[in-house]
Design a protein around this nucleic acid. Sequence first.
DNA 1: TTGAAAGCGCTAACAT
DNA 2: ATGTTAGCGCTTTCAA
Lengths: 344, 344
Amino acid sequence: MTIRDIAQRCSVSVSTVSRVLNNHPDVSAANREKVMQVVRELHYIPNNSARDLVRPQSDGIGLVVRGVGNPFFTGVIRSIERTIEEAGYTMVLHQIRSGEDELRAGAELARSRRLLGLILLGGCFDYTPEQVAMLDVPFVCCSYTNRFGELSEERYSSVSIDDQAEAYRAVRLLLEQGHRNIAVLLDSIQDRSISQLRYMGYCRALREYGIQPDSTLVGETGTFEMSAAYQCMTRMLRSGRDFTAVFAIADSMAVAAMKAIYDSGKRVPEDYSVVAIDGIDMSAYAVPTLTTLAQPQEEMGQRSVQILLDMIEGRGGNRHVQLRTALRTGGSVRPLSVFASETM
Amino acid sequence: MTIRDIAQRCSVSVSTVSRVLNNHPDVSAANREKVMQVVRELHYIPNNSARDLVRPQSDGIGLVVRGVGNPFFTGVIRSIERTIEEAGYTMVLHQIRSGEDELRAGAELARSRRLLGLILLGGCFDYTPEQVAMLDVPFVCCSYTNRFGELSEERYSSVSIDDQAEAYRAVRLLLEQGHRNIAVLLDSIQDRSISQLRYMGYCRALREYGIQPDSTLVGETGTFEMSAAYQCMTRMLRSGRDFTAVFAIADSMAVAAMKAIYDSGKRVPEDYSVVAIDGIDMSAYAVPTLTTLAQPQEEMGQRSVQILLDMIEGRGGNRHVQLRTALRTGGSVRPLSVFASETM
DNA sequence: TTGAAAGCGCTAACAT
DNA sequence: ATGTTAGCGCTTTCAA
């Protein structure tokens, strides 16, 4: 069923049908009504591929999201969507799985839908100039920035936190409370991404306190699944390795870790202090509330859209914005008592 | 940049370029190499709209998901994706927001991408035959079924739990432990959807025990947000209305409710028992672990795909599968002691 | 106000 | 092995 079928049924030309469908003014009321009627009757649905193909440009802004169920993203996505709509544009959301290349996916999306620009959410940290050249629309990396690739700053925009510095700050929180044996829970030490950066911050904080990072205190889960963090934490607790605090690079991991601690008969924060980075909803409802450095999800989304629109509307070029986290104090951290430290 | 540009640069015809791009065998090695080179050099990206337009049919199966951050869906989506891939098809994921019409969105997607079929995840419960007529491909409703619309069973397929019966079962769990004053936490009493059905199951269980549902024990949050459930629970606790147990229609609500109880100085399950329906990851890491009727996410996805493929491959027509939940016993329920009930 | 026709970028006959 | 060409379904000039 195409626009031609409608046209024939109505004994008008396809252009008339097209005009009706697109709310163009210059159609007689009679024809308009006739077309509408048949459209409803026949349940005509337009083919958007054909529309996209012929439309010179859309008002669409693409949002390429890596990882379907990431709870941190949902807040950011909402913020991005709202900001885009308020500015009078349309958001086109495209999810990709972890294995896919977001640059490629974004490039295809932008071309197929004739988008004005792209926001990449949760991408990877090592683009090359080669890869970026695929994109012929402005784009901004949201929640991350290019730390490991050889890409000059003028070639892209980003809105992110300073992962290393924030991890440093989180671990200092523990150090300042007297903790010295601090375990870390992360996805992978060398993922050339968030895990790696936050791990570097962890190491830096320790070294500053004269502590040599100890590999037996590093829990690599290999994924961001809560079950993996739970198992990893359980293993570390059973290993007999002494520690009094845990730094998790993500809230979700921290929540699972707290549960592992609880199930092993210990308490947070009495036996173990826990801090993390992210500030997702869930961790505010953990018992005790997780103490975490909350990323400004709302602002992250807004700023990303603003930068992109500035470029689209010719107000400016590539920019890099670094946002700070906000300490959300929960009940998962407490000072290491003298007694506790003596028994270590 | 189009396929023509590539062709010109290579001094070959567009068909040769197309053949290379689509891995057709009958191209000379020299030409193939030449084309590939230029494609890389110029960072050519094909226009998928044009491809979709011309391709007679794809191997794509559409998955229309309502609600971006719903944690219950992520497990189902993963299962659907795996099953589709294993069967040699391709999943095309399309997220819509709560306000949108999933039937319309599905119909547009199916037409534009020439999909073979559609799976609707988390849609609404009241389709009319009119609406369904938009779809000219087979489809299955995953996780819900048409309870409120006047749509005959042969017109669509579904895989779901019996929401009313499962809610009934959950509330009986509490009743059998001696609880009589049972609060319910839900989105809306009349959403013509899951909230309403589960509420009906709640009422039926109460009545069977000779208890008249009491509106002061109904917490309507108006959303599935955890914050709303938290606030609602806090309000009910402060209201002074006596109750010893809570039935939440979703795990996420239950987790927030448990936190509200904890923050009000009470304990789960000592002071309040809590049960829910869903079985999402998060609630397994709550303290105490939430006792819940877990929906079989994995199986739900698999069965949905199977039914759809049966229709696509001509093995069968519309079918309706009702799955049972599995009781995941946590630590959030305990018998109401004689003492406790006497003090009420 | 309406219709005829060109063409968006691509694939797949069909011809060579 | 390669090129020519006819569309896919739609929007939009341009003429009438």
